[in-house]
Simulated scan of single mutants.
Amino acid sequence: MGAGPTATAVMGGLAVLALVCAAVERKMLASENVLVELLSLGAVGVLMTSLTFLRCRRARELQRARRVSDAAQRVLLRPLPRRSGPVSLASVYRSAEADTYVGGDLYAMARTHGSTRLMIGDVRGKGLASISDTAVVLGAFRAAAHRQLPLTELVAAVEQAVRWGLEEFAEIGEEARERFVTAVFLDIPDDRPEVGLVSCGHPPPLLLRRGGAGVTALAVPEPAPPLGLGTIARDTYTAASFPFAPGDRLLLYTDGVTEARDDTGVFYPLARRAAAWAGDRPERLLHRIMEDLRAHTGGRLDDDLAMVVVRREGGSPTGRREGRM
């Protein structure tokens, strides 16, 4: 780590002092060569001190920005609990923009009386420009979840709130009118081995069967349009149900994962790779996928991405605190 501006100025001053002492000892202080060397050394010292000051100020600004970004992520993308009722959870998030922890992908969880609700979504756009839309969607979901609504009514309430929230940008221009959010909503009851699902134009979750019995994309028969599309949005929604037995895992993801490409333009084969690690615990599964994704792309991840893994463990353990939204 480089020295600070004070240390740099002290070292520069000591260098000038050493040159003066050497010149006095040799009785050459008034010579032209020594005067040129003193002026040059002093100028270099001032320049280095100024550059060091600017570097340290930039580092402090970047550190403050990172703290603000981290605080914003904790407010918007609240960490998921490791356990909620009979399911275990793990999540990962990566923003497309360097030194930024929040972007256009999102996820959230809520507990109702007897079930766990989850959502994952993708705002049109990426990085910092999409944070306002991310806040609108997450705020709408959390507000509706507190009302303990059935899943289909919850989605309708979120759509109405998102549509209203995104209309605030209508005066900006055509780009604002094209704002929308793809999302998938899940309801996992504590007492039944199934999962209810409503899709709003989002990639289907992957169901990893226990014991490596295969991977199934949970594509609903009638997916709804993305959230916030105004007149083509629905007022009523239909939920599809799928078996979700103890030991099964659900992998929720955004297109930042499946649309990542290697040097030849080949998309990342998420379903095939996830199937190979279906028996891993949720945290380990996500770690393996992220490492493999970086290897596939050569470390170039150009879009926001988010993933959530849900594993059904069985009955809700007694005496254990359940996760909150």
Rank of each mutant, 00 (worst) to 15 (best):
G2T: 09
P5L: 00
A7E: 13
A9D: 00
G12W: 04
G12A: 04
G12R: 03
L17N: 01
L19W: 00
C21G: 05
V24Q: 11
S31Q: 12
E32L: 11
V34K: 04
L35D: 00
V36R: 14
V36G: 03
L41C: 14
G42Q: 09
V44S: 10
M48K: 07
M48R: 13
L51H: 13
T52A: 15
L54F: 14
R55F: 12
C56N: 13
C56P: 00
R58L: 14
R64S: 07
D70W: 12
A72P: 11
R74C: 01
L76D: 01
L77G: 06
S84L: 13
S91K: 01
V92P: 03
Y93C: 01
E97V: 14
A98M: 05
V102S: 10
D105I: 10
D105K: 12
T112S: 14
G121M: 05
G121A: 15
R124I: 09
T134C: 12
G139N: 07
F141D: 01
R142K: 01
A143P: 07
A145L: 05
H146F: 10
R147S: 09
Q148C: 02
L154F: 04
L154S: 03
E159L: 06
E159H: 10
Q160F: 03
W164F: 12
I172H: 10
G173T: 08
A176K: 11
F180C: 11
T182H: 09
F185H: 11
I188L: 15
R192H: 11
L197I: 14
V198D: 12
S199F: 09
P203E: 04
L207R: 15
G211N: 07
G212P: 13
V215T: 14
A219E: 15
E222D: 14
G230Q: 10
T231D: 12
R234W: 12
D235K: 13
S241V: 14
F244G: 04
L250P: 09
T254V: 05
V257L: 08
V257R: 03
E259Y: 02
V266Y: 04
A275Y: 03
L285I: 00
L286Y: 09
H287S: 06
R288T: 05
I289F: 02
E291S: 05
D292M: 00
D292V: 01
L293I: 06
R294C: 10
G299N: 03
R300Y: 09
L301A: 02
V308D: 09
V310Y: 12
R311Y: 02
G314T: 08
G315V: 09
G315A: 15
G319K: 13
